[in-house]
Design a protein around this nucleic acid. Sequence first.
DNA 1: TCCCTTGCTTTAATCGTTTAAAGTAATAAC
DNA 2: GTTATTACTTTAAACGATTAAAGCAAGGGA
Lengths: 337, 337
Amino acid sequence: MKKVGLKDIAEHVGVSIALVSYVLNGQAEIKQVSKENAEKIKKAAELLNYRPNQIAKSLKMHKTHTIGLVVADINYRYSTGITRAIEAEAKKKNYTVLFGSSNENEETFAELVDVLINRQVDGLILVPVENSQEQIRMLQKAEIPFVLIDRNFPEIKTNHIALDNYKAAYTATEYLIKQGHKRIAFVNYKTTLFHLQERDRGYLDALKNGNIDFNADWLQEVNSNNRTADIQQSLDVILNLSEPCDAVFFATDTLSINGLKYLNQLKTKIPGEISVLSFDESEAFELFYCPVTHLRQPVEAMGKAAVDTLLELINHYKISKQVSLMSDLVVGQSCRE
Amino acid sequence: MKKVGLKDIAEHVGVSIALVSYVLNGQAEIKQVSKENAEKIKKAAELLNYRPNQIAKSLKMHKTHTIGLVVADINYRYSTGITRAIEAEAKKKNYTVLFGSSNENEETFAELVDVLINRQVDGLILVPVENSQEQIRMLQKAEIPFVLIDRNFPEIKTNHIALDNYKAAYTATEYLIKQGHKRIAFVNYKTTLFHLQERDRGYLDALKNGNIDFNADWLQEVNSNNRTADIQQSLDVILNLSEPCDAVFFATDTLSINGLKYLNQLKTKIPGEISVLSFDESEAFELFYCPVTHLRQPVEAMGKAAVDTLLELINHYKISKQVSLMSDLVVGQSCRE
DNA sequence: TCCCTTGCTTTAATCGTTTAAAGTAATAAC
DNA sequence: GTTATTACTTTAAACGATTAAAGCAAGGGA
């Protein structure tokens, strides 16, 4: 079964290709196609099971109705959430999503962006990886519409959608203080990523405003390529201080999962011996013996905002938009009351 | 910054477009392009930062170097695993993956397949949903290269890659019997999907060959759109039989997670009061108080097999390939020793 | 001198669409 | 009875690449 094109329909009906195109694009009225022909053309298209060749259309129209999405790691819960949200929103707007996962790797990220551009995506939604500033600047110079999501670089002015990480971390820490915790640890990645540093800042400010004297041992930094061991070491430190911590706040879900696994191993009782609070949610929390109190990101809203912003950019509204969203604190039973 | 095309390079160097095309496609030798020009052209391409327009190329070549992937639900652990595997393998072969999630919905599935075909993907890798037989037959009639993965319809002869579900369920059940269990329940979805029915068959045959008299109450069927409640009811049944079950085998990870949550709620001790075995793994198992014994699917091998098979089909080798893979039994501590 | 290679380059058709612009009857206006 | 208008329809040039086929010098052989 060979592909049927406009030509086939035109021949079948006995009119020109142009007429067929007009009718099938809903321009029958404006181009004053006779009702008779319009009818015949529609029937023939149906009969021959015509599928427009989007490739040809894209070439002519300089629009592919495709947006490219690069997430940091498809294995993150955040990634599947945001992918789903973006896909759903894009579909509503009649766009297709081409997507890839950089696995937090700079080269892979650059490659993916390249592939997507070569495929003529109309725009990009990106979760940038560490040290991808040059790549981002390149996109700006090339005037390719894009919006950053989840993360951004404060030194580069971009359109981006992100959580108010400072406030989120602040709120969570404040919550722990209100619950009566006096020695709150924070486990974060050692990173140059702004959004994670903001979480540090929120944590520290909340302590200060809560009149808690910060002890440098409380802020533990984990190296992402030595995660498991580093987390264990971090927890060993905060549990064995002369005054051990009574709460630990993990800066991401991956940190939480690893941390909780180790705490399980140590048979540390939660929240009896230590309270636990996590940034981001995880499917794994569902089966933990006590529901983990965590910050939930509004992925649907983020996805929608990202797609909306990108489409505005694509449609040549020269806009500058920085959307900052709030997280919800989902109270479980992993923090002392 | 406007897009640079072959024309721009040609003008810059002062040659024809054809020459540029030859050189940039590595046909310099065979087309006997002078070294001088070849050199100049390559330099100019670099200088102007030329990116070939894949759309135009695709239109001419009738090949997009894109494969379409439709998974059942991006939230399944299996989906992210297989997506990753397929992406990686496709990348090696220089193909891009366009993907979508049907959310187990028949219409969404059909729509996605349609969109992908309109985008002229070279072929499709599909996890078909229930009642999508017509859609599959349509693809065969249209001679569109595709391979089914994870699931297939025995009544339609297709190329497919799937687990040997019968053997996997058989092996797992046999394992439970060897561990001394006498009353083994199996919780599965109520479904017409062949691969899930095969799991039933494996379970039943293992019981028979293990000389265990099957009790109809042991095989519980859950309605997927009333999952939570149905699972609870199922567990209530098997736990409250005059002779309660001493093991429960869940047919999928989603069933396991829901089941374990309920067992947690009931404070049923695992494996003390009941042993648990799960098909598929889940991130959630990591934080369960005892590691869950489960069957692990070889997603990497499946992804590779799917891509390989599809590319063979695309390259006009008219093949018929049904790949059946084995799962591993990952022994945890959720089954009585 | 004429023709045939050889070595290199250009011309032009093509892929399947879109869409200005031009063409063509029939009807209306003067 | 011309000319204008209306109501359609077709022509043909794009879009940016690929690639047969044709073109064109310069050198070699007769």
